[in-house]
Amino acid sequence: MANIESALLNIGYLETLSSQQTPLQRLDPRVKLLTTLVFIVAVVSFGKYEVTGLLPFFIYPVALIAVGNLPPAYLARKILLAAPFAFFIGIFNPLLDRAILVHLGPVAISGGWVSFASIMIRFTLTVSAALILIAGTGLNAVCLALDKLGAPRSFVMQLLFLYRYIFVLTDEALRLVRARALRSFQGRGLGLKVFSFMIGQLLLRTLARARRIHLAMLSRGFEGRIHLLRPVRLRVQDAAFLLGWSTLFVFMRWYNIPHLLGNLAAEFIR
């Protein structure tokens, strides 16, 4: 129960972060969304044994965290929360793929471990980019950007409604859970059967609320289309943000910078 509550507070915290006044938050949401997409595509398009080539990409989350005044520890905790998914996707690679790929001095590293590391790095990069997008923009603005970029209106509205009513819904669920806890003794009444009644109850309440919301929309002239009034225009810094980062990502995708640096250093020593 406390977990649901603190999770909700956390969503609220992301919203607070996104309303800060820094150069990052002031950027047009569309360019942040597009840049994040380019970043993610660049990161996931690497070959499965790539590790060194991915490392330069950390500059993007690090730079944005610094500019956007975002709390790194908080974001790291959020990433850890999702880490088990990536971990279990990658963890079988070392068992299945035992061919030795690299020798680090006396230590031989199998292809499985390399690809596992690659998966974890990609996961960290993409999830942190997505989190930074939300924390630096706010979900509502991201949805608006999706809309302006031509995503289907019904999809965008679904997302907005979900975000609007998740709080109301969890509040309602929380009240149900509390009401049950207060009248349950020695574990009686906490079983699956009661739980299934509660889920049903929650569904009915939600349907009733959906009906009332629909009536409220109709009362204000809703005719199947939701209009949003939000003039947005691109400024020079927006375009610069998008072009600058995208160029860098493409560059880092084609040239393995650590490799180049290594070669350069070797050249120099020789």
Binding site: N140, Y165, M217
Partner: peptide, 26 residues
């Protein structure tokens, strides 16, 4: 103009401004 009993039913847009603009835009 109808003001519903539960404001949560009536304020369905992401921010206050959008919500007040909803009717006039329609």
């Amino acid at each position: 103009g109808m003001v519903f009993q539960d404001p949560d039913d009536q304020l369905f847009m992401p921010i206050v401004y959008d919500d007040v603009a909803f009717g006039p835009l329609n």
